[in-house]
Design a protein around this nucleic acid. Structure first.
Lengths: 220, 220
DNA sequence: TTGCAATTCAAACAGTTGTATGAAACTATC
DNA sequence: GATAGTTTCATACAACTGTTTGAATTGCAA
C-alpha cells in the first residue's frame, strides 16, 4: 500500500482552498504550499489540474447521488413501487440542501466546495454535470409512477423547478439572507427542504393535466 | 463628438465573443482582433478588462431592470397602488426570460451574453449583482402590498423561488431540453413565463400564513 | 546489501495574460 | 498652417500559469 499521504494531502488542501477562495484564484502553487508537497506532485498523481478538480467533484457528487437514490429506493419499496410525490422530491433535493446549507461555521469543507462548484461552474465540473442526466431520469421515472395522470412535460417541468429552487437557494443564500435582513433562516435546513418540497408538490399536482398549456393571460 | 468608433467596436466584439465562448477563454487579444483595433485601445477606453466586462453587464442589466420596473409601475398604477400578485411576478421574471430564452437562432447577442453572465459569474459581474438588492426590495414591497396577509418571510421565499425558477431555467435550458428529449419547449417563452408565474403564485398564496413553519414531516 | 521501481524534488520551460510606454498619427481650433 | 489635445499604434514588460524534465531520494523485495 503506497501510503497515499501526498495524494490525499493534495486533495484535502485543494478542496479547502477551492472552498474558501473559489476556483478562479487558486493556483497549483497555492495548493502544493498548503499541502506541503512538491509542485510536480499534482501532475504526477492526477495528471493535470483539471483532473484533480474533476476527482474532487466526482467524489462528492457520487456521494450525494448515492444518498438520493438510497432515499428514493427506500421510499418506492415501502410504497410497493409507487412513492408519494413529496417523498420523491425530498429524496431529490434533501441530500443536496442538507449537504450545502446549515450553520455557516459548522459547514463542512465538502459542503463549501460544492457550493463553489455550483456557483463558478468551471469546465471540468461542467463536463461531469452533463453526465448526470441519467441520474435525473431515474427521478423522472419515479415521479411518473407516482403521478400517472400527469403528462411527461409537466413532470419534467416540476423536476426542473424543484432543482431550481434548491440550487438557487444554495447559490444565493447570502443574498436571500441580506434581502430579508436575516428573517429567512437558511440555517434551518429542514425548513428549507419542506418549503421547496411543498412548492414543487403544488407545481406537480395543482390543476388537471388535460389542458396541456396553462391558462395563457396576455402579458402586455 | 469623438465618433466613438473604436469604443463601440470593442464593446460589440467583446459581447459577441463572450456570448459565444464564455469569459473563461476570451482574451483581450481575441477581442481587439475581432474588433480590428489595437490592443492598447481597451485599456485606453475602459481602464481595464474588468471594467469592460462591467460596462457590458451594467448596460444590459439596467435595461432589464428598467423594463421590470416599467411593468411593475404600470400594474400598480392600474390597480390603485395594489397589483395582482401574478402581474407583479410577471413583471419580475418576464423581462429576463424574454431576454434570454426563445428560438436559439434568433437570440440576440445581448441575450446570449446575459446567459453566459448567469452561468459563469466572474468577479466584476458578481460585484454588480450584489448591488441589485435595492431593486429586489421594490418587488418585495409590491408583493407585500398585494398580499397584506402574508408575513415577510413567506414573501421573501416566494420572491426567491420565482427568481430561482426563472434563472435556473435559463442556465439549464439545454439540460432540460435534453432530459425531456425536446418535449419541453423552451422556445415558447410566454409558456415558460406562465409556468413560472403560476407556480410562484401558488407558493405565495397557498395555505394560510399563520403557521410560521410549514408542516414538518420527518424526512427519515 | 543490492537492485529496482515508485516517489519526491528543484529547476526550468513555454506559453499566455493584462497592462504600460512612448512615439506616431490624427483632429479640431485658432 | 501651427498648435494642443486626443486617439492609435507597435512593442515591450513583468508576472503568472500549468506542465515537464531529469536527477535525487525513498521504500521494499530478493
Amino acid at each position: 500500500m503506497p501510503s497515499d499521504h501526498t495524494r490525499s494531502a493534495i486533495l484535502a488542501a485543494a478542496e479547502r482552498l477551492y472552498a474558501d477562495r473559489g476556483f478562479g484564484d487558486v493556483t497549483l502553487r497555492d495548493i502544493v504550499a498548503e499541502a506541503n508537497v512538491n509542485l510536480a506532485a499534482v501532475n504526477y498523481h492526477f495528471g493535470s489540474k483539471d483532473e484533480l478538480i474533476a476527482e474532487l467533484f466526482v467524489t462528492r457528487s457520487i456521494a450525494t447521488n448515492r444518498e438520493r437514490l438510497r432515499e428514493l429506493k427506500a421510499a418506492e419499496e415501502e410504497g410497493g413501487g409507487r412513492a408519494p410525490i413529496e417523498v420523491i422530491l425530498r429524496a431529490l433535493v434533501g441530500p443536496t440542501l442538507r449537504g450545502c446549507l446549515g450553520p455557516e461555521n459548522q459547514r463542512s469543507t465538502a459542503a463549501r466546495f460544492m457550493i463553489r462548484a455550483s456557483i463558478e461552474s468551471v469546465p471540468p465540473i461542467r463536463r461531469i454535470k452533463n453526465r448526470e442526466i441519467d441520474h435525473l431520469r431515474k427521478f423522472a421515472g419515479a415521479m411518473r409512477r407516482s403521478l400517472p395522470d400527469r403528462n411527461d412535460v409537466d413532470i419534467y417541468w416540476g423536476l426542473n423547478f424543484a432543482l431550481a429552487m434548491a440550487h438557487h437557494t444554495i447559490r444565493e443564500s447570502e443574498r436571500l439572507t441580506k434581502l430579508s435582513e436575516g428573517q429567512c433562516d437558511l440555517d434551518d435546513v429542514e425548513d428549507v427542504v419542506e418549503r421547496v418540497v411543498s412548492v414543487a408538490t403544488m407545481a406537480l399536482t395543482a390543476g388537471r393535466t388535460e389542458a396541456k398549456a396553462p391558462s395563457r393571460i396576455a402579458a402586455r
